[in-house]
Design a protein around this nucleic acid. Structure first.
Length: 204
DNA sequence: AAGTTCGTCAACCGCGCAGAT
DNA sequence: TATCTGCGCGGTTGACGAACT
C-alpha cells in the first residue's frame, strides 16, 4: 500500500499566501498554539494543508523569526557550520536564533556559494578549487556531532554507499572542473557511489 | 522599448524517522 | 512485529523582478 498524501489535496489552495490567510493563521496559532498541524487549517478556517501552514508559520509568521539579509557574522557562522555539518540546514539554523533552515539554504545557494567560488574555494568541500576532490563519503553518523546507539552505528557502517548530491554536478560544471567517469561507468547526480574517485579532469 | 536571460526566494514535494496502535 | 500517521528535513520548482541585449 502506498503512502497516503499528507492531506486531501482536492479543493486546497496552493501558491503564495495572502495577507488574509496569514492573519487567520497567526490569529489562530497565537490563541491556540498548534496541537496537530493536520487539524490547524480546518480549525483556522484555511483551505491549505497542514504542511503548508507549518511551513508558513515556521519560516515567516513566527514572532521570533528574523527577516532580512544575514549579517557577515551570521554568514561566517553558516560557512563554518556547513563545513562541519554539510547540508544539514536545520542543524545550522538551530545555531542562528531567528533564522530558518529555508532562509539559510536559500542564502547559501544564492550568495555564499558564489562568494566562496570567487574566493577560489569549492563550496562543497570548503577546499581550494585546485584541490577539489570528490567529497568523502561521509555517513549521517559521521556528520552528526552527537553519537548514536551502537546498533545505529553498526547500521551506518554497513552503508558504504552514499548519494552523490545533485549540486555536485552543477557546481563542478559551473567551475569548469569536470570529473571523469572513472569512479563509475555511468555516474550521474543522484546516483550512488562507493569509494573515492581518482583525479579530476580540468576543462578550460 | 521590447524581448530575453539571470538571480532571488517563497513554497511545494517526496522521503525518512519516530511514535502510536 | 507490522502498519499507520504525522512531523520535519532537504532538494527542487516556479513566479517575479532586475539586469542585460
Amino acid at each position: 500500500m502506498g503512502r497516503q498524501p499528507c492531506c486531501d489535496k482536492v479543493g486546497l489552495k496552493k501558491g503564495p499566501w495572502t495577507a488574509e490567510e496569514d492573519q487567520k493563521l497567526v490569529t489562530f496559532l497565537l490563541a491556540n498554539g498548534h496541537c496537530c498541524w493536520r487539524a490547524v487549517p480546518k480549525l483556522a478556517g484555511l483551505l491549505r494543508c497542514g504542511k503548508s501552514c507549518r511551513l508558513r508559520w515556521t519560516n515567516y509568521l513566527r514572532p521570533d523569526v528574523k527577516r532580512g539579509l544575514l549579517s557577515s557574522e551570521e554568514e561566517r557562522t553558516v560557512i563554518d557550520l556547513h563545513e562541519q555539518l554539510g547540508n544539514r540546514w536545520s542543524k545550522i539554523a538551530s545555531q542562528l536564533p531567528g533564522r530558518t533552515d529555508n532562509e539559510i539554504k536559500n542564502h547559501w545557494n544564492t550568495h555564499i556559494k558564489k562568494k566562496l567560488r570567487k574566493m577560489g574555494i569549492y563550496p562543497v568541500t570548503h577546499k581550494p578549487l585546485h584541490q577539489a576532490r570528490f567529497p568523502p563519503p561521509l555517513t549521517r553518523q559521521e556528520q552528526d556531532t552527537g553519537g548514536g546507539s551502537p546498533e545505529k552505528e553498526e547500521k551506518e557502517k554497513e552503508k558504504a554507499v552514499v548519494a552523490i548530491p545533485q549540486t555536485w554536478a552543477q557546481d563542478v560544471c559551473a567551475d569548469k572542473v569536470l570529473w571523469t567517469p572513472l569512479y563509475t561507468s555511468s555516474c550521474t547526480a543522484g546516483d550512488h557511489y562507493s569509494g573515492l574517485p581518482t583525479t579530476p579532469r580540468l576543462f578550460s
